[in-house]
Simulated scan of single mutants.
Amino acid sequence: MPKNKGKGGKNKKKGKNEADNDKRELVFKEIGQEYGQVLRMLGNGRCEVMCIDGTTRLCHIRGKMHKKVWIAAGDIILVSLRDYQDEKADVILRFMPDEARRLKAYGELPGTIRVNDGPPFEDDDQGADDYIEFAEEDIDKI
């Protein structure tokens, strides 16, 4: 029986994303493209995106990015618009948090958008009532 040399297999292929740490050139939108923020992931390589122009679109993650670039709710992405379907688009690129902040600094993204903090367009003052105050006598009863 031959010995395993340890050169291949599933475990060898995992963890090959060392190139993600390198700084890459900032990509701006062109004609037929739009910036957007992911509202929610739908599964099957699709997501619901709120584009900067105010339209909510159903976006398809392209095959080159599928299972290689992980997209979550709140991420800033670049989508390619379809000529024949305005309510659908294709995800071209996912911006890293520092790239999204640089886009916001350049004025490409509006000031109302929250960069990579979670689902977009939420008011911060709504979370103020998330706790309950107890009086001293209520604490003694517990």
Score class of each variant (00 low, 15 high):
108 E>D: 13
86 D>Q: 14
48 E>C: 03
71 I>F: 13
73 A>C: 07
52 I>Q: 09
50 M>C: 04
100 A>R: 11
50 M>P: 00
86 D>W: 11
57 R>F: 09
91 V>H: 13
62 R>W: 01
82 R>A: 06
85 Q>R: 15
89 A>V: 05
83 D>L: 06
99 E>R: 10
54 G>S: 05
52 I>L: 09
94 R>E: 08
104 K>S: 08
61 I>Q: 05
73 A>H: 02
57 R>L: 05
65 M>S: 09
83 D>W: 02
50 M>Q: 15
100 A>N: 08
100 A>T: 04
71 I>L: 06
81 L>N: 15
90 D>K: 13
59 C>A: 15
57 R>N: 06
63 G>I: 06
90 D>H: 12
81 L>T: 11
82 R>G: 04
101 R>Y: 07
61 I>M: 13
84 Y>G: 00
102 R>C: 03
91 V>E: 12
50 M>H: 07
66 H>A: 10
71 I>Y: 11
86 D>T: 04
88 K>A: 10
105 A>G: 06
53 D>V: 01
67 K>E: 06
53 D>S: 14
60 H>S: 12
89 A>D: 13
48 E>M: 10
89 A>S: 15
70 W>F: 13
60 H>T: 07
104 K>W: 04
98 D>I: 03
89 A>Q: 03
48 E>K: 11
103 L>G: 03
50 M>K: 11
68 K>C: 02
70 W>R: 13
107 G>F: 05
55 T>Q: 15
84 Y>M: 10
76 I>H: 07
62 R>E: 06
105 A>H: 08
93 L>N: 09
92 I>Q: 15
78 L>Y: 08
104 K>G: 01
48 E>F: 02
89 A>T: 08
77 I>Q: 05
75 D>R: 00
49 V>P: 00
98 D>E: 14
69 V>K: 13
67 K>L: 08
75 D>N: 14
102 R>S: 09
102 R>A: 08
66 H>M: 15
59 C>V: 03
57 R>Y: 07
61 I>V: 14
65 M>H: 05
108 E>M: 12
94 R>Q: 13
88 K>F: 04
89 A>R: 10
67 K>H: 13
78 L>M: 14
105 A>V: 03
108 E>Y: 12
83 D>E: 12
107 G>M: 14
85 Q>P: 00
64 K>C: 01
79 V>G: 09
75 D>Q: 03
61 I>P: 00
60 H>Q: 06
77 I>E: 04
66 H>L: 12
52 I>G: 00
106 Y>E: 15
81 L>R: 15
79 V>H: 05
108 E>S: 09
64 K>M: 07
95 F>K: 05
54 G>Q: 07
60 H>N: 08
68 K>H: 08
106 Y>W: 10
101 R>W: 10
57 R>K: 12
70 W>M: 13
102 R>H: 11
102 R>L: 12
72 A>G: 03
105 A>W: 01
79 V>N: 05
70 W>I: 06
53 D>M: 07
77 I>R: 10
54 G>E: 10
85 Q>M: 09
62 R>M: 08
101 R>I: 02
89 A>F: 06
74 G>M: 06
93 L>P: 00
99 E>P: 13
87 E>G: 14
